[in-house]
Write a protein that binds this DNA or RNA. Sequence first.
DNA 1: GCCGTTTTCGGCCCGACTGTTTTCAGTCG
Length: 574
Amino acid sequence: MENSEFAKIFFEIAELLELKGENVFKMRAYQKAARNVENLPKSLEEIYKSGGIKALKEVPGIGESIAEHIEEIIKTGTFKKYKELLKEFPKDFVKLIEVPGIGPKTAIMLLKELKIDSMKKLEAAVKAGKLRELPGMGAKKEENIQKGIELKKKAHGRFLLPEAITYADIVVKALKKLKEVDQIVPAGSLRRWQETIGDIDILITSKKPEKIMRAFTTLPQVARVLSKGPTRSSVVMKNGMQADVRVMDPKSFGAALHYFTGNKQHNIQIREMAIKKGLKVSEYGIFRGSKQIGGKEEIDVFKSVGLPYIPPELRQGTDEIDCAKKGKLPELIELKDIRGDLQMHSKWSDGNNTIEEMAEYAKKLGYEYIAMTDHSKAVRVARGMNEKEVIKQIKEIDKINGKIKGIKVIKGIEVDILADGSLDLPDSILKELDVVVAAVHSRFKMPKAEMTKRIISAFNNKYVNLLSHPTGRVIGKRDPYEVDMEEIIKAAKDTGTYMEINAYPERLDLNDVHARMAKESGVLLSIDTDSHVDNQMDNIKYGVGTARRGWIEKKDVINTNPLEKLLKLLYAKR
DNA sequence: GCCGTTTTCGGCCCGACTGTTTTCAGTCG
């Protein structure tokens, strides 16, 4: 079973325990375990296979009893306590707490008093005005729940990073005009470069919060105000995205930025460390007793608990604090380290621009090289190239390289890995190219073992350099195909094949967790945009963001090398 | 349920906002 599936079960248990009114710390323990499992760069099954319960307990957040649950899941597919918990509530009842405004207490009251156990019954009861009659409820709360239901229906879940960034920019630009605004900076999951964003969080420092709040809640993009206070306000924007603004005094900026960046688990861990040192860390600062001893700068928070600065992308509440303590934080790759882009398409297949146009754009980005990797013939919809066209394109690229100055176009192909694991073009063609990117574009629904074998057999071809978008996912649209990622990574290592972080925002594939797995196995990566239009090369920042979340360093990425070194790496397998 | 350079038991982050309350519970981040 995949780690994400274990995580899902533990998250669900946390919800059920919360509804049951169990000890909140027990609930939180399951949440913590779930989150750590989700971000674990090694599969639980592997860990269990190699060291049993004892090895499982080494994972932060997993103790005796959760380790036993994991063992039971591995052996039987589920576990007893989980099945029992599920039986305690009606099947669709858990969904009620997903409605903004309904928490566990309200949900249980609704079940007990009004026999509401589904969204349908909830809607009917709201319409009939029955909620307002319950103790502690009133007309206003009923109305808020109704709005919450509408919001839940409309909100299509999470947003891709670029859309969230666009909206954050709108708010930032609009509020920056106010003279009362001192500093203004987006925080939250956006600052951590998470692949999808639930809401945007913006931190402002100012001595006059009221005016800022008025301006924020009356922006033309605001559809509804959820709450409005002197220091914090929440709104729903017209695209359905929630936005929170927090206004703080400048002397609290650093502590507030840390708090507002999260994630939650990370913050809790930092605050626990502070307590042990006799300090209190909150968004207002670092305090000894009632005296503020720091918090103007973000680094103060880390210093106060004896840690080096931890970059936002690493703040996932997993093992970053442990590693920071031991001085084992990575030196994360930066955007400026990228020297070229190794996957893109031109008019020769399904791209919008000519090779020259792509090269010119890359030059503007300061790149030393790009690789043209148009599709191969199997991808009919993308007008993939056959043998003759590849040879023709090679000659064309030679011509362009003779003409254009300051950048080198590397000859490449994105060759299809066919269903039987063979490649779409013969070796006699592949050997004429400098970089061969292999990818799966068909038969996504293959059984896991077969798909894994299919991909690995492509690695055994000595011309194949790079596996592109290794899981094929399209966020929110297409699930990843089933592959055994650990085996793929192992095979990549054994054959000297590289793996891609595809920077296309809907892909981000490898994702952060897989990227870290690859790194820890010693597999080198390439961060590419897979551009089909010249300006899509700007997407490289999302790939770098994902890489940073995956603890990737400059030395782990082949396209941080100068051209000559890169070519050596590309020819190393032949 | 987890965890331990104060602890193997007794802790477990901290604060804002709302709506319903007469001083706070519930929800959220």
